[in-house]
Simulated scan of single mutants.
Amino acid sequence: MLIMIFNMNFSFAANLLAIIVLFRGNCGLSKCITRYLLGMAVADLMVLTIGVILYQIIDVYLPHSFFNQTPVCRVILTMMFISIDCSVWLTVAFTFDRFVAICHQMLRVKYCTERNVAVAIAVVFCASIVGNIPYYLIYEPRVVVNGVKWSCYVKSSFYTLPIWAAFLWLETILTPFAPYVLILLLNSLTIRHIILANRVRSGLRANNSTAKHTDPEMENRRKSIVLLLAISGSFIILWMVNLICFICVQFTDRQFLEASFNDPFTIAELSGYMLKFLSSCTNTFIYAVSQRKFRDELKNVIKYPLALVAKVIDLKK
């Protein structure tokens, strides 16, 4: 839990700073990219606020608070799944946008527009809300004290009724199996396109005896490859434990959210949740910090309050 709190503080600060910097619009990114990154950062901030603060931390340190009553707990859990889906599928949407922008120059003019970005973000948010509403119905009180229902526990019927089994399989296919496949496929095609373009460009430059200097275009493409590999790798690694736990529940007698925190499966499950939350908070940071102008603007944002404090101290003197 202490590790989760540390990761939450770091990720919360990173995403909050990313939102401020991107909102200022001075980091040299196109408006389409900026909108996607802003949407991803807001979704990631929702994951941290709802999934980590309102659910994980309060459940452990304030077990008898208002937020831990069953009706409120149900809403928090449902909103947590909504925010995770938003974060994951906005990453997919942005990956597809970059695939079109790099690999299909003709389609880029029609698809990569501010209007289409706004529509894509709205569709992702609305679909995430509609698709996760059933989660509100799968929980029951863990205990009832003096007529007050506390905490949330997955109903036993969730594991036996065919309709819930179908819902769980559908949700797992949509998040994260489908994003796994789409991100890997799109990034692989994008990297392949970049490599082929680099070979052609290298061949042309080899025929030009005067071209001895470093090619900025090829350097930018190499950076794009590293960036895409970082996004794909972080998503796959950080979701792996959660996927393994899902498979165990489907093919063994294990259940989610078991009461014993000394059980190895429960420890693995909670670790998977922590890594999943971390995954929802890294992509915006990776995309943004890789941009030099973003780093410069980030320094300006950090220096600004320090400069104000220095001015106030000078005035008091």
Rank of each mutant, 00 (worst) to 15 (best):
P71M: 00
Y136H: 10
E171A: 15
E171T: 13
S65I: 03
T78P: 05
V123P: 06
M106H: 13
V154P: 02
S128K: 07
T113K: 09
V72M: 15
I121R: 01
A165M: 14
P176N: 02
I121M: 10
V100A: 10
L168G: 10
C73Y: 10
L185G: 12
Y159G: 04
V75D: 02
C112L: 07
I129Q: 07
L90D: 01
I76C: 01
A93S: 04
C103T: 01
C152M: 06
M79F: 08
V100P: 07
F99P: 01
L161G: 01
I129M: 11
A127L: 15
C112P: 00
L182W: 05
A127D: 00
C152E: 00
F96D: 04
P63H: 06
C73R: 15
L174C: 15
N146F: 00
R108F: 04
H104P: 03
Y136D: 06
L90C: 04
K155W: 00
V119T: 07
V119G: 09
D97E: 14
V88S: 04
A166K: 11
Y153F: 09
M106D: 13
F125P: 03
I76Y: 09
S128V: 02
P141V: 10
V130E: 06
Y139T: 05
W150V: 03
L184C: 13
A166W: 11
L168W: 06
D97V: 08
M79R: 02
L137K: 11
I183Y: 07
E114W: 02
Y180H: 15
T113G: 02
C73W: 05
C112F: 08
S156V: 08
V124W: 05
S128W: 03
D97F: 14
W150M: 10
I84V: 13
L184K: 08
W164D: 00
W164A: 03
A166N: 08
L77E: 02
L77Q: 06
Y153I: 01
C126H: 03
I82V: 13
M79A: 08
A93Y: 01
L182A: 09
L170P: 01
T175N: 15
I102A: 10
E114L: 10
Q69L: 10
T70V: 04
